[in-house]
């Protein structure tokens, strides 16, 4: 039995761009450009090739200690293996949902999971109120309790068309299709230009699309 030369291992969790490109709206070159971005994000505090929560917060807020309910939810959804870090494959597959060419259905489903804070399979009134309060706190906006209750009640009654006190996936989908701006933040135009945003990589790209 001979020895096989070990394949070059980039970092734990690294996956081949061809594999990721086949599963996402990205081309191979775009996945390679995303690897450049990933390397930058994953080495900003701990240089281990994995994005830790603090690194994610640092990238989003320029502050590693800034806690935010929504950023936490995004991090948790990106961390598919739920091991406390975002690996390269998880990063690319999750960002694929934010690609302008990704199916709208995927964006709607992702937003649903994002807002289903307690993983019950429904968006409940308490969850909606918790998110509104978090947003107001984040934005230093002050509204009276009455007004907050009215906003939550009104939105909930519009979305909960079955009137059972919770928003299911079907109701959520219908609500978003009626109000498409709700998933505007689920599309990142940058992703179409990722190889331009990181031009240094294009010069060293090994694969031509």
């Amino acid at each position: 039995m001979g020895c096989y030369p070990s394949k070059q291992v980039k970092t734990p969790g690294y996956e081949e761009p061809t594999v990721l490109a086949a599963e996402t709206p990205f081309t191979v070159s775009e996945v390679e450009a995303l690897y450049e971005l990933f390397k930058k994000l994953s080495s900003s505090i701990i240089d281990d090739g994995l994005i830790h929560k603090e690194e994610f917060q640092l990238a989003l807020f320029k502050n590693r200690n800034k806690r935010n309910l929504f950023a936490d939810r995004i991090f948790d959804l990106f961390d598919v293996k739920r091991n406390g870090v975002i690996e390269f494959g998880e990063f690319v597959r999750s960002l694929g949902i934010f690609h302008p060419n990704a199916p709208v259905e995927d964006k709607i489903a992702f937003a649903f999971r994002l807002y289903d804070l307690r993983h019950t399979g429904f968006i409940e009134r308490e969850e909606l109120k918790e998110m509104v309060l978090a947003l107001l706190h984040e934005s230093d906006l002050i509204l009276s309790d009455d007004v907050i209750e009215q906003i939550v009640d009104k939105t909930f009654s519009d979305a909960d068309t079955k009137g059972d006190g919770k928003i299911d996936q079907e109701e959520w989908k219908a609500f978003v299709l009626k109000h498409p701006s709700l998933i505007k933040n689920m599309t990142l135009p940058y992703l179409k230009d990722i190889t331009i945003v990181f031009p240094s990589f294009v010069l060293s790209s090994e694969v031509e699309d």
Partner: peptide, 26 residues
């Protein structure tokens, strides 16, 4: 009054924590 007609999900979607474009800033 204006706030009562506000869509709560619309409000939430403006969170900075959901604006991933910051990840691409050099």
């Amino acid at each position: 009054t204006a706030p009562v007609t506000m869509n709560a999900f619309e409000l939430i979607s403006t969170s900075q924590g959901l604006n991933l474009s910051s990840l691409f800033e050099k």
